[in-house]
Design a protein around this nucleic acid. Structure first.
Lengths: 142, 142
DNA sequence: CTCGGTGCAAACCCTTTGCAGTAAA
DNA sequence: TTTACTGCAAAGGGTTTGCACCGAG
């Protein structure tokens, strides 16, 4: 089953049509695995494949993909949302943001289970977490 | 040295005047220690003390206080900034956000040193971090 | 054929900025 | 008196929405 099959199944199951525009946005997201694209980034990359696509369609598509858990939608301190393809189930939203070049990369470890269980003992129910480090990436840290 | 003394020293050192408006915003922030207020929250609470204060002044004041490290300015996923009085130096920005009532509280632990030193070994320079848990607070988790 | 999807432009929300008048120091 | 600060309203940036047309199923 190809990536498109997986997605179109998900769309189908929710009465959504797989239009050219949605396929285009999906292609862009797949071609940028691991990157955190803003809506405008997605628009510009989509326009290279389909010049007439509009920003509203991009937003609406990304919104739907986020609700189907095909992409993650995260607000960073810069004040706009960024969208990232969901790689697999155990993605943990650990970002490291370079304060110089602005690059956002992922931290793969999961050292937070202790902290989560500590909070659950206090009566919280933890559903998700989002950890961001701010600093300088190896290239800029010179 | 009272709280106002500390602040007015900081303002003085930066050629800033301690106006009625700034004093009002500071009072509001002190009266809401530990809370994460939006600019509009601050405006409404300030208007109770000084009805003519404007939103632009609130934003400008909070911006100055943030640059003086008197308050923290953080963007949450709802898409707007929230401001919080800096309590002390070892504040770690560990937030827990209730997905039901929307309350934001603080997590005091610091279990992230391992993770930070791991990243520094990889060549990163870590300056700060921001950890958010999403879930349900003890009250709503029933 | 039907109904959801699209592009455009206008509306929206939050935040910032320009300007003429105001008030700290 | 001097210079920074204020309130207002307008502008800005990102996101959402209304509407008439379009196209996937």
């Amino acid at each position: 089953m190809t990536k498109e099959d997986v997605i179109s199944k998900k769309l189908e199951n929710n009465n959504y049509k797989l239009t050219q525009q949605r396929a285009t946005v999906l292609d862009v997201m797949y071609e940028n695995k691991g990157k955190h694209l803003s809506a405008e980034d997605v628009l510009l990359k989509s326009k290279q494949k389909m010049p007439n696509i509009g920003i509203a369609t991009v937003y609406r598509t990304l919104e739907r993909l986020a609700s189907l858990e095909v992409v993650y939608k995260t607000m960073f301190d810069e004040g706009k949302y960024r969208y990232e393809l969901c790689e697999d189930e155990n993605h943990q939203h650990h970002h490291i943001i370079c304060m110089d070049c602005g690059n956002i990369s992922e931290v793969e470890e999961d050292l937070l289970n202790n902290l989560e269980s500590h909070l659950e003992k206090k009566g919280y129910k933890i559903v998700d977490h989002d950890l961001k480090f701010y600093g300088y990436c190896p290239d800029c840290n010179k």
